[in-house]
Design a protein around this nucleic acid. Structure first.
Lengths: 158, 158
DNA sequence: CTTGTTATTGCAATCGTTCGCAACAGCGGC
DNA sequence: GCCGCTGTTGCGAACGATTGCAATAACAAG
């Protein structure tokens, strides 16, 4: 493959994500390590383009589609997840940390996260009143977000 | 504009959605009426392409981008909403209608209703903490119902 | 009805993402 | 080390969705 000098990162420094990939029988390529490193370096969310911007200076030849494919692979392996944000940008984040809950705006499509602790009391209540074990990890709450509420006070025209 | 004969639909038959649009100060064009008609004709969800397929035979010149823009307009006007399905397709539906909450069992498919009063505190909490006006009427809560819980004390985890 | 203003449309370019395919490289076997 | 199988990559074309812009039509006013 491309033989650029790798910014020093011996096998010893291989991350958990890399290890998981190998254990699942995938090949560990240079591109994948680079992309994984970028994902791991970030708190919260990161877009494909963010990764590309970060990787490109050091690895001019790493292709965009490889980033897309690697992220998809990591998601299938359960190592990362993604969300769609209001401006249409897709952002990725490390998995783990359990299922987070999303608030999705019906108007602008903005997607934000919701602490599970906010939702947990509802699960308890439903369990007590109906004997129903709710799986709250997998539904989205829709509604109207703060900024659209403000904008929506007076109808907008162009 | 294009002067195709309109498939007979006088002002008297103008829909609620059309009325709402006009009341909000938007112009009522033939294209918008056609698109609105298509949305109203459908129970449940419809994709942009569904609309295009349905409209195109009668209105060869109605442009795809007009459909996109009209749906976006209708959503901002609060008349329709959209969801992203797991296959990536975006689908649209009429907004409004009743606030009903359902509990759906993942095992047996049983569907029961949930008092809104159980859910209301969550809406308040979300409003206070995130400034987000949750529309809890349109999400289903999945999980495992009482009888399946009893039957299946041992069965599957994940 | 005619006119003027301006929102709306059609078109083509564009954006972010996916896909098909030939070239290539990781990894296990020699 | 070298070889070969096959998973992976880079490239470019294609896809759904969006946007800029000039032409056009809706609506109000005369």
């Amino acid at each position: 493959m491309l033989s650029y000098p790798q910014p020093d990162m011996g096998p010893a420094s291989l991350s958990k994500l890399s290890d998981s990939l190998r254990e699942q029988g995938y090949r560990l390529t240079l591109q994948r390590e680079i992309i994984i490193e970028a994902v791991e370096a970030v708190e919260g969310h990161i877009s494909v383009d963010d990764i590309y911007q970060q990787v490109h200076p050091r690895f001019p030849q790493v292709n965009l589609s490889t980033i897309y494919r690697t992220l998809e692979l990591l998601e299938q392996a359960g190592l990362v997840g993604h969300s769609h944000f209001h401006d249409g940008v897709t952002k990725w984040h490390r998995a783990g940390e359990g299922h987070h809950q999303h608030l999705i705006c019906e108007r602008c499509g903005a997607e934000s996260e919701l602490e599970l602790s906010v939702v947990a009391p509802l699960a308890t209540e439903i369990r007590e009143r109906y004997g129903f074990a709710a799986n709250l990890g997998h539904f989205a709450i829709t509604g109207i977000c703060q900024s659209c509420l403000r904008k929506g006070e007076q109808p907008h025209h162009h």
